[in-house]
Design a protein around this nucleic acid. Sequence first.
RNA 1: GCCGAAGUAGCUCAGUGGUAGAGCAGCUCACUCGUAAUGAGCAGGCCGAGGGUUCAAUUCCCUCCUUCGGCUCCA
Length: 642
Amino acid sequence: MINITFPDKSVKKYESSINGLELAKSISNSLAKSAVCIEINGELKDLSYLIEEDSVCKIFTKDDQYSLDTLRHSTAHVLAQAVLNLYPGTEFAVGPSIDDGFYYDFLFKENIKESDLIKIENEMRKISKSQQDFVREEISKDEAYKMFSKQTFKQELINTADKSEGVSEENISIYKNDKFSDLCRGPHVQNTSLINHFKLTKLAGAYWRGIETNPQLQRIYGTAWFNKNDLDNYLKRQEEAEKRDHRKLGNELDLFISTDETGPGQFLWKPKGAVLRQIIEDYSKKAHSENGYDYAYTPHIGRSVLWETSGHLDYYKEGMFPPLKNEENEEEYYLKPMNCPFHILIYKSDIRSYKELPLRYFELGSVYRYEKSGVLHGLLRARGFTQDDAHIFCTTDQIEDEILNLLTFSIKLLKSFGFDSIEADLSTRPEKSIGNNDDWEKATNSLKSALENQNISFVTAHGEGAFYGPKIDLHVKDAIGRRWQLSTIQVDFAQPDNFDLQFVDSNNKRVKPVMIHRALLGSIERFTGILIENYAGEFPGWLSPVQVKVLTIGDVSNYLNKITKSLKGFRYEVDDRNLRLGEKLHDASKDKIPITLIVGEKDELSNTLAINIRSQDNQQNVKYEDAIKQIKANLKTPIFKI
RNA sequence: GCCGAAGUAGCUCAGUGGUAGAGCAGCUCACUCGUAAUGAGCAGGCCGAGGGUUCAAUUCCCUCCUUCGGCUCCA
């Protein structure tokens, strides 16, 4: 007799041991039908798992995330099975479920091509049709070595006894279906026939265990769902996300271009993009100058001695553009990858008193980083970009207040642009770093208490800090739920040392200040790209490069004059081409203009016009004065106030 | 940097070992137009760059550049 406790706390008695599927059946047939896996005493198991003692159980159906994960993991097995059927001698590595899908990594005898995926997908469908059961077995390590004698990656997994791959010290669990077996902790769906609605999506390279010096495997990605509708929805979602792509929209909306001649990762801003950028920059500048920052300008290049002192040449040379030099002048210059050394020189240009601190230097500083060619991604990852950068010099006692103010400031700024959902990462000391442990700990604690004080939910990213100090990164969620890193706040105990920074304290002693690096929007290029994706190019009125478009019908030049006069101060365009109204409307909508005015000869007499506000999706005929009022209300710039 | 895919007109994309194609955009003309693309005509190209194979290469092969999807990286 065993007692099973269910999530609603009810307890059922069973005569003898019972497996998950039978358990589901004992509740209802429909539950048995939709059951996929089961949680027994907090551990996820197959439905076939035999429960032999009193347990707490929860049955997961097709609607649960765990079930989807299970399905996808099982689909990954079928993928590996299909690959081994088609390409005997292929080595297979790991194949987990991931968001919306799964992957499996392989070492083929000869690399496959993307066009081979169709063949593999067809083989998978065969396996699905042949209705094979997934069977769990536990075998000894020795047996496992034998079973995977020709699979070097599996051997390594067995060796390192990684529990997450179904390997533990004593025995090893494997899953078998037909002639295929794989090391696996499970659980799996019961039968391959459940694996119906899937698609292999892409082929990519991936390093074994994610380590660059390891051999590179070929990774096949796929997606899998319980029904066709979900699969179709997913594919549609992907398409929608593609429509938001800032590179595509940047071109369509005439915002920016990149050309072969400028070199990869660098952008040319066309007038409309430049306006957008200018609004963002002006807004940020104003916010800074009203909140205790001083403006600074610094050059784009500096002598190598500067980058030696700062430590960049020691720690970051790979990420910098190659040096500039000529025959007359042997000395090398470097393009700046960061603004901080220059701001430090400004600090050092005078003897500083404790009464001056904190000093905050702000600059829209363009920096150049030699990003690896494979990582470039439009505006989101460029080689030349502009940071809304500032460096704060303060006393140790001031750190906590400064960080707190910074967090408040940053959150407010991000919210002004429409990002309301904000989370943080707290990154601690990495292996490759400078400075002493005491300083690191002190700084990390200041960051942590500021986050707690501001009630920002955060996770600690161990070892992810900069080489010179710990940091807070703020992430926002965009309109379709993607997470973007924007602000970064970094404490730096190292640079003040490198440059021997000092201030005179109240005892007339020379003391080392602390430095805080921070960029709130991050890179203006990247931020603009994220804005484009967040709004799908349909910017709020105050950010829109063109805010109002006036469409004329017939000859209304007098009336038009009056209207454009009251639009002074707004960014407007007039479309008085001799075209049908339908076409003008089409063009205005294609350009994602927030407000469209239609003015015809009849309107001139009645002093009216038609106003189309994109966000309201309706159209009204209103008096001229009303229209102007509505325009002003819709195009308001958010007020920045802390 | 690595694995895979791609580069043809301003844009989106067909196509072929033998003189290069469409739609949109552009220009010209007609229509004088009230709610989501009016019609006709014209013009537009070193088929990413360099090398090779061939009587002949945009097409096949090699190298490079750039872009895209990933991996690694993002101080």
